[in-house]
């Protein structure tokens, strides 16, 4: 790594830190807010923030999925759900659950302890980078000539796999549309029981 890149990396670290701080802030605000529309908008903001964080981690495809699903579709879905119910959440009585807190703390500690054994970021000898990963990294510039290796793997090396995934998602989407709103999608009206029997 050349010394010229160092200030950019420090700035990137600062951006990551501020993005994560904002994420925590938004999550706390969502927990505390009783105004459901604010929660819906904040969840869109939350997923845009995590998308920026993913871009900063170079996971561009994950970031775009997060933005499209989290900020786009989920917001509209949650808005649709909210319009079916009340606009405000009923105030819940605070309940203490020490056993649950203890269990969460224990699992969190175990996970942090397990993460200490993980290989360092970008370690060339880690299991993820040593085998097939290195092969992809070496072949992609020659064979595919796409700057992003993940894109090359998804769209070229595993193209048929991705095509199958797209088919599955398309089928699921068609099924959901048929179940939920085929009538309203045609601009039709509700079918009464009598019409259905006839």
């Amino acid at each position: 790594m050349s010394p010229q890149e160092a200030p950019g990396l420090t700035a990137n670290l600062l951006i990551d830190l501020s993005l994560l701080t904002l994420l925590v802030f938004v999550a706390l605000a969502m927990l505390r807010s009783r105004h459901l529309f604010a929660v819906v908008m904040l969840s869109g903001v939350y997923s845009l923030l995590s998308a920026s964080f993913f871009v900063s981690l170079d996971a561009v495809d994950v970031a775009f999925t997060e933005a499209a699903v989290g900020a786009g579709i989920s917001t509209v879905l949650m808005l649709a759900g909210m319009l079916l119910t009340a606009r405000r959440e009923k105030p819940a009585r605070p309940r203490r659950a020490p056993v649950a807190l203890l269990a969460v703390a224990a699992v969190g500690t175990a996970l942090i302890y397990a993460s200490l054994d993980m290989p360092a970021f970008g370690d060339p000898d880690s299991p993820a980078n040593a085998g097939v990963g290195r092969d992809y990294l070496e072949r992609t510039p020659k064979e595919i000539a796409v700057p992003n290796v993940v894109t090359a793997v998804l769209a070229s090396y595993r193209g048929f796999d991705t095509l199958g995934e797209v088919m599955v998602i398309f089928t699921a989407g068609v099924a959901v549309i048929l179940l939920l709103g085929a009538g309203s999608a045609r601009g039709g009206r509700a079918v009464t029981d009598a019409e259905e029997d006839a």
């Binding site: 950019g8 951006i15 604010a38 908008m41 869109g44 923030l49 871009v55 900020a71």
Partner: peptide
């Protein structure tokens, strides 16, 4: 709130652009 969400999306676009040049 809608406007805040929309302008936050715009800021995300700008941040991604600036991050690209930063790195």
């Amino acid at each position: 709130r809608v406007l805040a969400g929309n302008s936050f999306g715009t800021k995300t676009v700008l941040l991604i652009g600036v991050m690209g040049y930063l790195t």
